[in-house]
Each structure stands twice: as C-alpha cells, then as structure tokens.
Design a protein around this nucleic acid. Structure first.
Length: 751
DNA sequence: GACCTGCTGATTTTT
DNA sequence: TCAGCAGGTC
C-alpha cells in the first residue's frame, strides 16, 4: 500500500478529512474545494488502515459520481481491492440488497423497477377507473403528492387516517390502489427502493445487524440532497458503529422540491453529537472574480451554514452581462461569443451553456446549427425513455418478471394485434378475480367468454411466445436470442414497414440497445437479464453522455451540478424565468433558486457570461421580461455589461430540431448537419422591417395579399395589426373562414 | 379496434 | 409553440 500517495497533495483541511477515520464526520465542502479528492483519499486511507473494502459503503446520487469515485480509488489502491467496495447510488446499492432479501419483504427477487413514466401510466389507469369522476383529476400532481408522501415515509394507512379534506381522501384512495397494483406486479418505483430498504432493516434484528456489520464505514456524498427516507436508512445502518462521514454543501441544495431536506445536513451535529466538522473552503476551480460574484449572490440567503470560499487563483476576467432584444438575439449573440472563444484557442468541450428550463434550448439549438457549432444536449428525454426503447424493455421485462402488468399492458397490443382496450379490461377483470398476473390469465383466455375470435387468438399466441423465450433464456442469454424474440413479436417489423425517417431512427435505437445488451453480456458473463434491466432503469442521461468530444454542451442548471467548465454561459437571466416563478414565490423557493444560480456560477473556471432578453416567447406568447434580481446581487466591480444591439435575426425562425435526443443515429446526423457551412453574414441581414416570418418574400405582407398557410391553405389578408413579433394578420381562408394569426408563427407565404 | 383531429396545459428531475 | 391526451368517426 502506497501510504504516501494517499496523504500527498492535500491541504490541511483535506488532510484532516482523510485522517479522521472513526466516528461521525461532517465535511462542509464548498464548490470546487476538492471534495471528491478528500472522499476518495479517505476511503483509500481506510483501506490502508486495514479496513476490508467490502466493509465500506459509499453512497452517491448519480452513477457518474459513483463511477468517478471508484476510478479514483482504484488509481490509489488498485482495482483488485477497489472492486470490493460498496460504492454506488442509493438506488442501485439498495436495489442490490433488496434483490438479495426480497422474500423478507414480500417481493420476488426479479422485481421490476418503475421509472417516473411507468408510475405515471399506472396512475393514469387507476385514475381512469376511479369511481369518483365528478371532476377531472390530473396525474402529475397526484404522482408528486404520492412521491412526496413516500419520501416522508407516510404509508397508505397513515395517510388515509390523516386525510381530512376531500382532495386528500381521493389521493389516499389512489395511493392505496397504486401500492396494490405495484405489489401485484412485483414492482417498485424509485421511492420504494429507499422505503423498502428501511422496511427491510426494520423487519428483524438479524437483518439490521447483518447490514450494520457489513457496512462498518459509511460515506455519503451530496448529503444536503438526502430526503427523509435516505436519511433514516443511513441512520439505521450507521447507528451501531457510528463511523459515518457525510459530505455536502448546504449552499448547493437544489432538490427541495423533490423531497430533499436541507435540515439533514444543518442538523447533523444534533444527530451525532460527537461529530467532527471539517470545512473545505479553499476553491481550486474558479477565478477570484467568479467567486466574488458567487459569494455576493449566496450571502442573500438566510438559511445557511457559515463559510466563505477563497482561492489562490488569478483575479481573472470580468463577468459579461449581455442584454438582448429577445431569445433569438440571445441565441445569436451567444453563438458569436462561442465563436470568439474558439478563436482565442478554446475547445468546444470547454464550453457549456446553462439554462433554467429545457424549453430554452430550442432557440439556442437553431442558432448553434446556423453557426456550425456542434453541440450535445444533456438531459431532456433520455434514450431509455424513448417510446420504442420502453416498448422493447417491456418485452424483455416480461421474460424476467411475468407478474409485471405494466410491461404486459405496454406490449400486448404493440404492434396492434387486435387486442385493444376492451379485451384488456375483460382480461384484467378475470385476472383480478382469480388473482392472476395478466400474462397468466392469457393462458386461460378460453374461460373468458367476452374475449373471442381474433383477440382470444392473439392473447394465446402472445403468452405462448413469451413463455417460449422465457424458457430459452434460461438456457443461455444472448443478444441474438432477444433479437429473434423481438422479431417474432413484430416490434421490429412495425418500424420496418413504416418508411419514415422517424421509424428509421427508432429502429436504429433498438439496434443500439441490442448492441448495448451484447456488450453487457460480454462484460458480465454471469449477469442475468434482471441485472441488465436494473442497470438501465437506474441510469440517467448525464451518465451516458460523453462530455469530452468535440462539442459544446447544453444543459439545465440542475444537471450541471458536480461538473465544471472553463467557460460557462447562463442564458435567460430574467425575473420569472430565473428565478422561476409560477404564481407567488415563497422565500424558501427563492432561496433555492438562488442556490441554483450559485451552483451555475461556480461551475465556471475562467469565464462567465450571463445573458437576458427583454422579450421572450413563452408558450407561443410574447412577454416582456425584466433582468433577474440575481444580477443585481453580483458586486458591480466584477461585471461588465453590454446592451442589446436591437436586432433580431430572421435566420432563427427555422424549424427547431424534431427531437432533442443526440444519441447514436440521430446524433450523427445532427453533427453532419452542423457541418454545413454557415450562410449567415451580418452585412446581409435583411432590414429590420422585413424580419420575422418574411424570409420568403422581400416586401412585408399587406391587406389584400393572397397567401398560403400550411394548414388552412389559400386565403386573403384582411387586416394587419401590431408590430414586430406582435404582428397579427386577419386572414380569410377558402377552407376555414376568417382567422387571426400571429405572423411570426403562421409562416404565411405570398401566392 | 384503429386512426384522425382538436383541445389543453406547460418547472427544475440525481434515481 | 408543441406534445400528449380524449373523444369522435370509420
């Protein structure tokens, strides 16, 4: 063991963290303060002090963080030892344990993991069947309410007794039915993975002691983002040995809205009275100016632990604030600035553009493409959430967990087999009355008089096919086998037959999944499908994306946490957008928005640009915007501002990308596309008067002009009113009569 | 049961 | 705007 290597290159605070091996330790680690270094060296040091790696549990929030940690520890102590560490996300480690102990909590070890979409679709069905139909119940609020209850560890029974108002009573009923369906399907949602771990630990003294002794040393990363269930689970595990080390930064807590409880970190000292507190306050990442800005912002929050970051880095450049006329100009100027950074010798992968909401990426993408700037988007819809991938996964899931009724419902009529909603309802009634899984009810379809003919035949054939492949994979798993299963099911043909670009992409995505499966099998010869499915159900987009390529990166501020870039742009610095406000903003929400801004600012190593627009299209409406209040919180001596040129650019009215997935086939195509030389030339900008939708003709449309509209066909303009983007046209169409249209969206063509 | 059309509503999202 | 549903029609 190379002891010196472990203690080398650490500052005094880091060194103390690395050397404090026993008892509770709280490390307050400011942004860019070498937190991962302290954590990984500490783990290496534990092993150097003869703690067996398999007695160490390191919990993170993302796979990416876990992977980085494992790699760095392997670099310090060697892969042969590092591989025995229990390092991973809360969800992946807990589901590993839950599979081992499944029978103790009434599950089968092949349980399915339902992601948010699966939960939503299950809830939607429950709501649709719900007796109380007096008014419309929307799914999303119900789902987040139930998730919130689970995060607070409130059971269906507890909530049912607490529920006083009518709304809560409805939620209580839906919650109960939802849990019942999950149970029947042998499935857990994300929240259950945490909750059931607690149920397991509380199920018997033996189990609790087993895992307390298995994990003699526990480390938790990003502790400020733990919710109640995570907090309790960790507390249960750590209570015997009290060797718990948590790392976090209350200033970077940005997940309150999904149950993260900042008091877990603020009150660590109360939970573990003899804990040692170590502060990592030297920042190695950012310039003095950037830190000054970050500090100026975060000091406006009341609820926080005392600390102040400092750095020995250079003062660095000033922070640029740019005012833009609208989101198109913002995107345009951003692209130009990116090009300037490239001319200065920056590489694309050193640059990131951050925004508050995913919707903002559209305008940015259009502009980046016209400027020939290749980019990748992290976030948005993940590969595994694509319809075709979810369909294929549903088919595969059925082979492993036949009880999974969601997987069955998803696949039975995809492609259409003549087994629709009505047949499904009859099947479900029968299955429920007999206590059967849907797929098993299919085998008795002859006993269901309501299902006859084509539907009955479809059910029988489907069940037989699933049965056949279930047996086949028991003899040996291969991607080829899964491929012929999908072939036989008709999913592949379904996309083959539709000769569209879209279905081509979908097929390519399925192929990509099969390639992925193949390489998984090769890397893990002993692994089974359950493990594969678990792994893909617990990965996120950030884990998959390679941020080192020759692309610049676009992502939301949330996704950016834990990352750093030499050049950071934050777009949309406007009140209402950032801080994001729906109706009324509470102080706590505003403080969370401010922490989010703090996270964004501290991603930057050398250069930070902040942009805002005076007008912005929201849901197709134009609204005037005011600069974000956060901008005023930045000390003015680190800022330099530039006002709008007042120009908008008609180049950017083009169609947004059809789909924001930059994965495999689609990504390649997009990269090719962005290699088309830019045809934009500032001197050739059309005069202001002609901008907007009028790139087709050279003079503005006027009353009396005959026009063509893509939906309504031929028409004649009766009236034009408003200016610029507010411009409206009243048009009498041959087909649909008179309509009033926003000209910037209507794309009227003169005929 | 499949397909088309019109309406509605829309944050952030580690897993 | 635009996606994702519900509800109507064939």
């Amino acid at each position: 063991m190379d002891n010196e290597k472990i203690l080398q290159g650490l500052n005094p605070a880091q060194l103390e963290a690395v050397k404090s091996l026993n008892g509770p330790v709280l490390i307050i680690a400011g942004a860019g303060s070498g937190k991962t270094k302290a954590l990984t060296h500490r783990i290496a040091n534990l092993i150097a002090h003869n703690v067996p790696p398999h007695n160490i549990l390191a919990l993170t929030f993302t796979n990416k963080a876990a992977k980085e940690m494992k790699e760095r520890i392997a670099g310090l102590i060697g892969q042969d030892k590092a591989k025995f560490l229990w390092a991973g996300t809360f969800h992946s480690i807990f589901s590993r344990i839950l599979r081992i102990e499944a029978d103790k909590i009434g599950f089968n070890s092949n349980f399915s993991i339902y992601d948010t979409d699966d939960s939503t679709s299950l809830l939607r069905k429950i709501i649709a069947n719900f007796a109380n139909q007096s008014r419309k119940i929307s799914v999303n609020p119900i789902r987040s309410k139930i998730s919130g209850l689970k995060n607070q560890m409130i059971t269906t029974k507890e909530f049912a007794t607490k529920a006083m108002v009518a709304d809560d009573k409805i939620v209580a009923d839906i919650y109960r039915l939802y849990e019942f369906e999950l149970q029947k399907s042998n499935a857990m949602d994300f929240d259950d993975l945490l909750l059931n771990m607690i149920v397991l630990l509380r199920s018997s003294k033996e189990v609790l002691h087993k895992y307390q002794n298995a994990f003699k040393y526990i480390l938790v990363d990003e502790y400020q983002d733990t919710n109640k269930a995570q907090y309790i689970a960790v507390k249960l595990l750590a209570s015997a040995h009290q060797n718990i080390c948590v790392v976090g930064d209350d200033a970077q807590s940005i997940y309150r809205w999904r149950g993260a409880d900042i008091s877990n970190i603020l009150e660590f000292n109360k939970d573990y009275p003899y804990s040692k507190v170590i502060r990592l306050e030297q920042n190695y990442r950012s310039t003095k100016n950037i830190l000054k800005a970050a500090h100026g912002v975060i000091r406006n929050n009341k609820n926080q632990l005392p600390k102040k970051l400092w750095t020995e880095n250079d003062t660095g450049e000033l922070i640029d604030v740019l005012q833009c006329a609208d989101e198109k100009e913002e995107a345009f100027r951003l692209s130009t600035l990116v090009q300037k950074e490239l001319q200065k010798g920056r590489k694309l992968n050193e640059i990131v553009i951050l925004y508050r909401t995913n919707a903002q990426s559209l305008a940015l993408e259009n502009s980046l493409r016209t400027h020939n700037l290749p980019y990748i988007i992290v976030g948005g819809i993940s590969f595994y959430k694509r319809k075709e991938i979810k369909d294929v996964i549903a088919y595969i899931t059925l082979l492993v967990n036949p009880y999974d009724n969601e997987a069955f419902t998803r696949s039975i009529n995809e492609p259409p087999r003549g087994f629709g909603q009505t047949s499904l309802r009859h099947l479900k009634d029968y299955a429920d009355s007999k206590g059967l899984a849907l797929i098993n009810a299919c085998k008795e379809v002859d006993k269901i008089p309501e299902i006859r003919g084509k539907a009955a035949a479809a059910a029988t054939v489907f069940a037989a096919m699933v049965n056949e492949y279930t047996n086949k994979i028991k003899e040996g798993l291969s991607a080829n086998l899964i491929s012929s299963y999908l072939e036989e099911s008709g999913v592949l043909d379904m996309y083959n037959e539709i000769a569209s670009e879209d279905s081509y992409d979908r097929l390519e995505n399925i192929k990509q999944l099969l390639i992925d499966l193949e390489s998984y099998i090769q890397d893990n010869p002993q692994a089974d499908l359950t493990e594969y499915l678990q792994q893909i159900s617990l990965v996120s987009d950030v884990d998959e994306k390679n941020l080192d390529g020759n692309n610049l990166t676009l992502m939301t501020l949330h996704t950016a946490k834990g990352l750093e870039f030499p050049v950071v742009f934050i777009a949309g610095m406007e009140n209402g957008l950032f801080p994001l406000i729906r109706d009324r903003i509470e102080l706590e929400e505003e403080e969370e928005e401010r922490r989010l801004f703090y996270v964004g600012v501290t991603r930057a190593k050398e250069k930070l640009y902040l942009t805002y627009a005076l007008r912005r299209a929201k849901f197709g409406e134009i609204s005037s915007q005011k600069p974000s209040k956060f901008l005023r919180e930045i000390p003015s001596d680190v800022l330099q501002t530039a006002l709008s040129t007042g120009r908008t650019n008609s180049e950017f009215t083009g169609r947004p990308t059809q789909n924001r997935i930059n994965y495999n086939a689609r990504q390649e195509r997009r990269e090719n596309y962005s290699q088309i030389p830019p045809d934009y030339d500032e001197s050739q900008l059309p005069p202001e008067e002609h901008q907007g939708n009028m790139s087709i003709t050279n003079s503005p449309l006027q009353p009396g002009d005959k026009v063509h509209h893509s939906n309504f066909g031929r028409g004649i303009i009766l009236k034009i009113e408003g200016f610029g983007q507010q411009k409206k046209a009243t048009v009498r169409f041959d087909s649909v009569g008179t309509k009033s249209l926003m000209m910037q969206f209507a794309k009227l063509q003169r005929i």
